[in-house]
Design a binder for these strands. Structure first.
Lengths: 142, 142
DNA sequence: GATTATTAGATCGCGCGCGATTTTATTGCA
DNA sequence: TGCAATAAAATCGCGCGCGATCTAATAATC
């Protein structure tokens, strides 16, 4: 029961993810961002105030071993600030700087550019997104 | 026009791909393989004889900078052999060793295990796979 | 209140994954 | 034939992404 890559759902997801990141790359490169960095900023833009490393990791499903250096790079770029929570000294809270907040407007055109390239209607995109999220959650739970 | 990750199709693909690799990881680890290594072997198992680095890269949509070290690791494990084409000395042909061929049987249970965990019917899997491949190809072409 | 268990991040090692560049071989063209 | 253009792999640098491990802080248990 061995299949060629062209028949494998996992490979479809794998190569589509890379194609998607290739589509984002030139747009984000103009802003000096990588795709994972853009995801972290998207999480921060979506909720007011600061968020802990743990919360961001939960949203993006990334381990601290991935997230810590990623956020440190954003900090080095001056887009976010990191500081210890006073209520719980274990937690590190991440806050957008002014430059990080301003980046939201500078990146505002990106989702539209990608949607155009995907060649799908809004409802098709939403349906596919929900199906893929459901598969992800089933795999994570099982 | 900024969305939270939970509303982004790209993030659905991104996190589902990682969830899929997490599902494969323990099964492949028993065989001493990583997921990309398994993909290369799947490509080789699906076609008799040897295949060039370029052909494998085309099938898996990977650059030579990714594929060369990956295949060298498979060679170091004794699963494949690499040799220059005689007709065209630029080409490197990759051939399964006996151990590489035998790995196909040892990994035969893997696709079924993943399909079970995905919780989708065969037709649902096929439909999603084709939709995702179509999206990928649109993104690559645009 | 002291000891143990749990939790949050950080660190380390390793394998991708790619863009940019380099090397070597083949092809095209005058 | 000779020389530029193209093509195939390999190499290098950098940023993920994770499992395993470590450290420090809080929570739980006695």
């Amino acid at each position: 029961m061995t299949l060629p890559p062209s028949d494998m759902l996992c490979f479809a997801l794998y190569s589509a993810t890379h194609a998607m990141q290739s589509a984002y790359a030139p747009l984000l490169a103009e802003l000096g961002l990588t795709y994972p960095q853009y995801l972290v900023l998207s999480a921060l833009w979506s909720s007011p105030g600061s968020q802990s490393m743990g919360t961001i990791g939960h949203i993006l499903q990334l381990e601290s071993s991935t997230l810590t250096p990623l956020v440190k790079r954003l900090e080095a770029m001056g887009l976010v600030a990191r500081h210890r929570s006073e209520r719980d000294e274990r937690r590190v809270l991440v806050t957008l700087t002014d430059a990080g907040t301003a980046m939201r407007d500078r990146a505002a055109h990106v989702p539209g550019c990608i949607a155009d390239r995907a060649g799908l209607s809004q409802s098709e995109i939403a349906a596919l997104r929900d199906t893929v999220f459901a598969l992800r959650d089933t795999l994570r739970r099982a």
